[in-house]
Write a protein that binds this DNA or RNA. Structure first.
Lengths: 348, 348
DNA sequence: GCGGCGATCCCAAACGTTTCGGAATAGGCG
DNA sequence: CGCCTATTCCGAAACGTTTGGGATCGCCGC
């Protein structure tokens, strides 16, 4: 390994001065600096990250800890999250560590031990549940972290979208088209984003002087097979929905399949909207008819998340960065207005 | 942060003795050791990984570097690889770092710089191509690493399966059932495993005194859509294949879809075999009729890989661990014997 | 009484870096 | 000539750990 000492010997300067030359300090002669830099590249010098960390107290490593799981369902999103996050964090000159615990391991303990052992500057937390113990743990530890999504029960820095608006916007669009029997294939209600989306749907109904039919509100794992079977279920009801809101594009794919299976045409017999996370592996493109709905690309979230986390790490006192990302809505071609009682106007 | 100094102050011993007590050295009184351990847990001591690394020269971190890519196709497998590897490596008390480079970054340079900067004990390389520059680079650097798969053009430690046998076994089974027009939806021929599988198929044909029809050998990205369109293509030939060998279960899924689309029944009109990597997200289960073929679970590969890499890191001189994992074959229910010219016996 | 020995302990150096405080030199100015 | 400043350099300490080479003490056998 090439060290500062090697360079200092080579150029005949002290270690101190070599360090300063390379570090861009002012008290070093321009000619000297150049000589040092030349020697450094000639010898193939790379500063030792470990030694630097020990001295500065920062390792430049941020970690995300996920529970290992034999259940592939829970991992459907994770891949793109890891790829996206890792790329953004690398781009900021930091390193990203994915720590996959053994199935059944205590995730809170893992955070504590990893932080206590130094070497981790900060953490990323995804998919928080209400009163999430990871957030409490890291707050108590005083460890820098940021959450994708949020936990309403404790203050913390986060990057999120307005999930209330997701539910409200899509439900409102369908209600305005005259739909009344609207089903919602929502994510797991153990997570806050799903709760908020449900509230948004409720609010849209309330704004139209209506209320949701609980039998049409489903909370499922957000993957295609679950969406398909839930949609099949809904379409077999005595009084099936005329529209379905899907929590993501994978669920929507299941809905399209279930509709095809049941001989139900989209949008003729059934209108469909979905929230699109902009995932590359599960694109909103390729639906026929083209799928509409709200959209917020997760890739944008990783950019904000990384930048904010870097700031939080740099700051001595955790700033409460709370960033709400933009949401767009596209009505697509998978929805259709239905005949409604003209005594109940739905537009201007 | 709780350090050895804090404990030493607490129990009234020297830092040296505290370190030795915790490190399990012999020259420390049993009673003293207990006192130290108690104090350590009471104060919440965790050894500082950075300081330890600086002293010992080992960080306990192994890394895998992948090129960031806007192309989701290339990532289809990667997720389970990352999850599996990370879990196994964590289980060995090491850390796994996934480094996702910017799209277009020089992967070889990333390996060099990351290794030179200390902090990385070893690397995992997957999907080697012939004369892979990453392998050359790490060999030149003297860095510990292990490859999943192998590069025949340079010696290096690896864990792999017998891909020649994969091709040979499946082709042989179909040939023995009387099939002659056998298609092979292989992976990209830029990677050695696909080359070997092709050679295995060729060898099986040769053993039967036959040779493959090049028009039926396809090299594709190993995901469902590609498999589907390739299979559609094959089934539209004037003289379509009576059997298809799929490189993995995702391709097989595409084949099943294409067959359904074309009104071709499996196994009545078309026999199908596939190699199964045992991936949880793309299971071989759920096929109707049940899919058969060779099988080798990648999870087994990660276990061997991690253990071997750990040994390589511990050793001063790189041992050339070359491990070939077991392969199993199940004929499934998606193949069927076809009428053959009785003048050409196919069995005992 | 003395050398030796086992048990238990500690000093100090080292890993490679950053940085505080100062030192050396040269030049300007009264 | 003495003083001050600016420029350029360096010694030494520190981060927390591990470890080689002792130190100390009590006790045994001769």
């Amino acid at each position: 390994m090439v060290t500062l000492k090697d360079i200092s010997r080579d150029v005949g300067l002290s270690i101190t001065q070599v360090s300063r030359a390379l570090g861009g300090h002012t008290d070093v002669n321009a000619a000297t600096r150049e000589r040092v830099q030349l020697a450094a590249t000639r010898l193939g010098y790379r500063p030792n990250a470990i030694a630097r960390s020990l001295k500065t107290g920062r390792s430049g490593i941020v970690a995300m800890i996920v529970a290992g799981s034999r259940d592939p369902d829970s991992n459907a999103h994770l891949f793109e999250i890891v790829m996206g996050l890792s790329a953004e964090i690398s781009a900021l000159g930091l390193q990203f560590v994915l720590h996959v615990g053994q199935p059944g391991a205590d995730v809170v303990k893992l955070h504590t031990e990893l932080y206590r052992s130094g070497g981790i500057d900060g953490f990323v937390i995804i998919g928080p549940s209400p009163a999430d113990p990871r957030i409490k743990c890291l707050t108590d530890l005083g460890a820098p972290f940021i959450v994708h999504g949020r936990d309403p029960e404790q203050p913390h820095p986060f990057v999120d979208i307005d999930n209330f608006d997701v539910g409200r916007t899509m439900a409102d669009h369908l209600l305005s088209l005259g739909h009344r029997r609207i089903a919602f294939l929502n994510g797991p209600l153990s997570e806050f984003f799903a709760i908020q989306r449900q509230r948004g749907v409720d609010a849209a109904f309330a704004a139209h002087g209506l209320s949701v039919d609980p039998a049409l509100m489903r909370s499922i794992t957000m993957i295609e097979p679950q969406g398909r079977s839930a949609a099949r279920d809904l379409l077999q009801l005595d009084n099936p929905p005329t529209a379905i809101i899907a929590g993501n594009t994978m669920i929507a794919r299941g809905v399209y399949h279930a509709a095809a299976d049941a001989g139900v045409s989209i949008p003729g017999d059934l209108s469909v909207l979905a929230h699109d996370d902009g995932l590359e592996l599960f694109p909103a493109a390729g639906f026929e008819p083209p799928l509409g709905g709200t959209s917020a690309h997760l890739s944008a979230a990783w950019i904000s998340l990384s930048a904010d986390l870097k700031q939080i790490i740099a700051a001595s006192k955790t700033p409460m960065h709370n960033r709400i990302l933009d949401l767009t809505f596209d009505k697509g071609s998978a929805t259709q207005s239905i005949l409604v009682d003209r005594s109940m106007p739905v537009g201007p």
